[in-house]
Design a protein around this nucleic acid. Structure first.
Length: 902
RNA sequence: GGGGAAUUAGCUCAUCUGGUAGAGCGCAAGCAUGGCAUGUUUGAGGUGGUCGGUUCGAGUCCGAUAUUCUCCA
């Protein structure tokens, strides 16, 4: 059997022989694209080329790209694992033409590879071409049709509609017709019964699309119309997992040697054989019944083997989360991090629910994957321990969430009225929405108690949530208005902070909160936010016109300048000037980051890798992989080394256009999860100390950093520590503030020499005084109890005491009342006092009287409090009230006597 | 970006509608057993995240803020 690794290699070798440049997979986590969190297709890493933002370096490229999909027309996270051919993470084999070859070669080579190299029988293949679309005014893709005719019988060339055979990147941008290749993997008998052409694009699990060739020839505008593209491109994608399945003659992607190692491991842990679960019985055509924890659960037909599904879910998801974490995306509670967390939790949930895994298990699968992919995607093997640790922590956290949810649900069940079978959907939604407790677990547990939720209520609540979110994120982007055509914006900001520029294109963007413009220049001194360094701000001027640039960002490698308004004469030549003080501060922080990075590796060890960084004009933030707290001594050491390097005033050595191999040979630090081109920029501060691949801006001598002070050290995630530091003016300010605050404190302490001791003394004294006051109050209360307990008036079944006392605090009054209540059986105690110049009433009623329902302190206090113009309340045994009218005190006493004499 | 929730003793968490801040574990001391595991009694430990407001009175109601959790996009 040909292995998956051999198949991948064959593909890449084939296109290399056709003049393609082979590139490694881009990291699965996307940076610099607001519309995309993860690489979701083979073409995504080349988006900047298709959009014309970056120049074409190689016209022919081939690769195997890690992709991640959790939503989309055929890919809902909740469906993955149910069937045998959808995945969250998959590899996309692709060959690319950027303005080079087009339909003829693409079609010819795909045919050659599949039939001659991989030897897929021709009578199992079908192809599709775009049939055209009247609404769009698009004709049949006759060109493609004619090329296919040279290889395959015309009746095997099927015409597809816009949904299947017209590919678009998004609402706007490059698009075009596509041509797909489908394979019919059914046994011969079935193939004779039903013709395969009838099953193409019909969701048949054995008649599947394996290769999509997209011919990009149009550009979609915001108003929906299509424009022909000047340079035509080919974008192809062949799902690796499907190809392997076909070539290894399996009926399921999960039966290939890509997934079997993990599945077999999971199977052996659970003691359940993969491929069949005897607890499931057929109910009807569409429904099966599963016995789970004594309950019968109706499942969909495809879910007839639930333990198999669980194993597939786990095998699929562990790949996704492992590679995402290796590429720098830690699980978190927003955005991309949240997607990873959700996928991880889904895997845990399936293990928990169907395989009885009650302890972390995903983490132990990491070594299997790392070994399996060590030659293709070495980033996992290189960070195996780190990834496993992060996953372990996440699993533990989720198991805790489940525990809290189980408790809450238990509460709900206990509180639901006897005999009522339905639990409110809102309650189920609250469990899900607020406590992260999965709905299907709620349903499972309720079923065991013969209860169910109100599904309609749940769905309504969910819809409301979705609408809120949609309304809040509505964004309206208009078309670019192009003034001048350029290849790409030239960045001159490494050397100049101001220069003459022209605006090449601009557009308006509307969000709910604000409205702004994006400008693109022919060249720019503004650094666009990337690599953790914030974008520059500044102004552009022309004559009297002056426009503020509030932000500079990169969108698909396109530097975009953001302004609140447009200049009147937009065609003018402008002087673009970067805010220099800010830039200087940013550069100092960025250079300091490099020095800290090197020092951390020195002090903590080689395992330290950058896991994120932020550099702005205020401070720098640097995350590293490290498994324990960085101790105060270690921080001190790092600071010392960094400041030593600053004092040495080392000159910046900048290599702007170095081949990446040479840079690596120099020992330059590259980051996991970062995409590098063939030629890179290298920043050196002392060849023996710090060499990094970096696109950011830096000081020309380390001396300009002035001084570096590490402010905080904290944890951001399992195995990741965060360090924050300040430099130059901010660092000076920091010390000045501390010094003046210290001086002020010293002054308050009469300029004592030993401030620390003075404060400790003060605190000790304070504690002693507090205790003394407390003791005094207690004594006073005790004396009063002694004095007063003999003065109760007997009134038949009970005795009462009504007295105006003098006590120092509300607390003392309370203690006195309770003490007196305790001292005399069957008593009612009514005390009034003046506290902080306000009248207060306390009433205590003995428990026996309360039990006999003779008196209620709460009711009585309410009646009395009106006299002092206040209010009060409490329990039957003790109640208190306060008021505002001091003159009412005597009247209260009188009224109380009246009440009690009755 | 939007919604919900949490923040109370060293730790894990209670405290129904505003009116006496508690439990379990841990800690300290005493007692029981020859010693230990342990049992038992007593005790210490709280600006109730922070700031502001409403109220006679706020852990509890309202607003802001910080941190964490969670859902949607």
């Amino acid at each position: 059997m040909i292995t998956a690794n051999e198949i991948r290699k064959t593909f890449l070798d084939f296109f290399a022989s056709k003049g393609h440049h082979i590139v490694p997979s881009a990291p699965i986590v996307v940076k610099n694209d607001p519309t995309l969190m993860f690489i979701n297709s083979g073409m995504a890493p080349f988006k900047d080329i298709f959009l014309g933002n970056s120049p074409i370096k190689y016209p022919r490229v081939a690769d195997s790209q890690k992709c991640l999909r959790v939503s989309g027309k055929h890919n809902d996270l909740e469906e993955v694992g149910i069937d045998t051919y959808h995945h969250t993470m998959f590899e996309m084999l692709g060959n690319w033409s950027f303005g080079d070859y087009f339909k003829k070669e693409a079609i010819g080579w795909s045919w050659e590879l599949l039939t001659e190299v991989f030897k897929i029988p021709v009578d199992r293949l079908y192809v599709t071409v775009f049939e055209g679309d009247d609404k769009e005014g698009l004709p049949l893709d006759e060109e493609a049709f004619n090329f296919w005719k040279q290889y395959i019988a015309p009746e095997r060339i099927l015409k597809g509609n816009k949904k299947d055979n017209f590919w678009e990147m998004g609402d706007q941008g490059p698009c075009g017709p596509c041509s797909e290749i489908h394979v019919d993997c059914r046994p011969n008998i079935e193939r004779q019964e039903i013709d395969g052409s009838k099953l193409v694009n019909n969701d048949h699990p054995q008649v599947i699309e394996i290769w999509n060739n997209v011919f990009m020839q149009y550009n979609r505008l915001a108003n929906g119309s299509l424009q022909p593209l000047p340079a035509k491109h080919v974008d192809t994608g062949m799902g690796f997992e499907r190809l392997v399945r076909v070539l290894q003659e399996k009926t399921s992607n999960y039966d290939t040697d890509i997934f079997q190692p993990t599945i077999q491991q999971v199977s052996s842990w659970s003691g359940i054989h993969y491929g069949g679960n005897p607890t499931i019985t057929k109910n009807s055509e569409d429904e099966y019944v599963m016995k789970e924890a004594g309950a019968s659960i109706v499942v969909k037909k495809e879910a007839s083997e639930i333990s198999d599904i669980a194993m597939r879910v786990i095998a699929d998801h562990i790949r996704t989360i492992s590679f995402a974490i290796a590429d720098g995306q830690l699980p978190g509670n927003v955005k991309a991090g949240y997607v990873i967390r959700r996928i991880l939790r889904r895997a845990v949930r399936y293990g928990f629910q169907f395989l009885d895994f009650k302890k972390p298990f995903l983490t132990h699968l990491v070594p299997i994957l790392a070994e399996q992919f060590k030659n293709v995607f070495p980033e996992l093997k290189n960070q195996e321990d780190f990834v496993a640790k992060v996953i372990l922590e996440e699993e533990n956290a989720f198991l805790k969430t489940l525990e809290i949810g189980l408790r809450k649900l238990d509460d709900v069940i206990k509180k639901s009225p006897e005999g009522q079978k339905e639990i409110s959907g809102n309650v189920a939604f609250e469990l899900y929405d607020t406590f992260g407790f999965p709905l299907d677990l709620t349903q499972l547990i309720l079923r065991e108690k013969d209860l169910h939720i109100n599904q309609l209520e749940f769905d309504t609540a969910m819809d409301a949530q979705k609408n809120r979110a949609r309304n809040a994120t509505a964004i309206d982007t208009e078309d670019w208005i192009v003034l001048r055509e350029i290849d790409s914006t030239e960045f001159v900001g490494y050397d100049q902070l101001s220069c003459e520029i022209k605006i090449t294109k601009y557009r308006k963007v509307k969000t709910k909160a604000k409205e702004y413009y994006q400008l693109v220049f022919d060249k720019t001194p503004f650094y666009a936010e990337s690599g953790g360094q914030v974008g520059d701000t500044g102004i552009i001027t022309s004559g009297d016109q002056q426009i503020k640039i509030t932000e500079t960002k990169k969108e698909n490698n396109l530097p975009v300048h953001i302004t609140d308004s447009l200049p009147v004469d937009i065609e003018a030549v402008f002087i673009a000037s970067v805010n220099e003080t800010k830039r200087q501060a940013i550069s100092a922080n960025h250079s300091a980051t490099h020095l800290i990075h090197a020092a951390l590796k020195d002090v903590l060890g080689a395992h330290v890798n950058q896991k994120g960084s932020l550099v702005n004009d205020e401070y720098l933030r640097f995350d590293i992989s490290h498994f324990q707290k960085v101790s105060d001594e270690e921080i001190e050491k790092v600071e010392k080394i960094v400041n030593q390097k600053i004092f040495e005033n080392i000159a910046l050595e900048e290599l702007r256009n170095l081949p990446i191999d040479e840079a690596r040979a120099m020992g330059a630090m590259a980051l996991f999860g970062e995409k590098y081109g063939d030629r890179v920029r290298v920043i050196v501060f002392d060849k023996t100390y710090s060499i990094e691949l970096c696109g950011g801006t830096h000081v020309s001598n380390t001396g300009q950093i002035g001084f570096c002070k590490i402010i905080t050290e904290s944890a951001v995630a399992a195995g990741v520590r965060r360090i924050e530091a300040i430099t130059s003016n901010k660092a000076i300010q920091y010390f000045e503030n501390k010094a003046s605050a210290f001086d002020a404190i010293k002054l308050l302490l009469n300029n004592t020499k030993d401030v620390q001791k003075a404060i400790i003394d003060l605190k000790d004294e304070n504690i002693i005084l507090k205790k003394k006051v407390e003791k005094y109050e207690n004594e006073k209360v005790a004396t009063l109890i002694d004095e007063l307990k003999s003065t109760y008036t007997n009134q038949g079944d009970y005795s009462y005491l009504i007295h105006h006392v003098i006590v120092p605090s509300a607390d003392a009054l309370k203690n006195l009342t309770l003490g007196l209540k305790q001292s005399t059986e069957k008593s009612i105690t009514v005390l009034v006092a003046l506290i902080d110049n306000k009248p207060m009433i306390n009433i205590g009623v003995s428990d026996e009287l309360v039990a006999a329902k003779l008196f209620s302190a709460g009711n009585m206090v309410k009646e009395l409090s009106t006299i002092i113009k206040g209010g009060g309340g409490g329990q039957p045994g003790y109640a208190s009230a306060g008021g505002t009218d001091i003159n009412g005190i005597d009247a209260v006493v009188k009224k109380a006597i009246e009440l009690l004499k009755k």
